[in-house]
Simulated scan of single mutants.
Amino acid sequence: MRTQVERLGPEQRRVALELMGFPHDSVGRLMTPDYIALREDWSTEQVFDYIRQHGASAETVTMLYVVDEKGILLDDIHIREFLVAPRTGHVRDFMDRRFVCLRAQQNQDDALADFRRHQRVALPVTDANGVLLGIVTLDDIVALREREDTKEIQKLGGSEALDEPYLQIPLLKMVQKRAGWLVVLFLGEMFTATAMGFFEGEIEKAVVLALFVPLVISSGGNAGSQATSLIIRAMSLGEVSVSRWWQVMRRELLAGLALGVILGIVGTIRIAVWQGLHLRDYGPHWVPLALAVGFALVGIVLWGSLAGSMLPLILKKVGFDPATSSAPFVATLVDVTGLVIYFTVAYAFLHGTLL
Rank of each mutant, 00 (worst) to 15 (best):
A307K: 08
G134F: 05
R80C: 02
E40W: 06
R270E: 12
L187N: 05
D149K: 14
R7V: 09
L315Y: 11
I153E: 10
L38H: 05
Q176I: 13
H351M: 08
V100M: 09
Q108Y: 10
M196G: 02
T337Q: 05
G294I: 07
P288W: 01
S241N: 12
L38I: 02
G276K: 08
G89A: 14
F212E: 01
G224Q: 03
V242H: 07
S57A: 13
V207T: 14
L167A: 15
R251M: 07
T88C: 00
Q105K: 13
R280K: 14
V207S: 14
K151L: 00
V334Q: 02
I51C: 04
R97P: 04
F22T: 09
A122H: 07
K177L: 04
V242A: 11
G89M: 09
V91A: 02
L279P: 03
R2N: 14
D163A: 09
A290G: 05
I271F: 05
M196I: 07
G55S: 04
R251N: 15
E18D: 12
T228H: 02
H285N: 13
Q4W: 00
G71T: 06
P214H: 05
G55R: 01
A346S: 15
G197Q: 01
A331L: 08
A307P: 05
H54E: 13
D281G: 12
R2Q: 15
A323K: 03
V301L: 01
L74I: 01
L302D: 06
S309N: 00
R178L: 07
V298D: 09
P284N: 14
K317Q: 13
L315N: 08
T3C: 04
L30R: 03
R116V: 10
D321Q: 08
V242I: 08
A143L: 10
Y166S: 10
T324N: 14
P288C: 07
L215I: 15
W286Q: 12
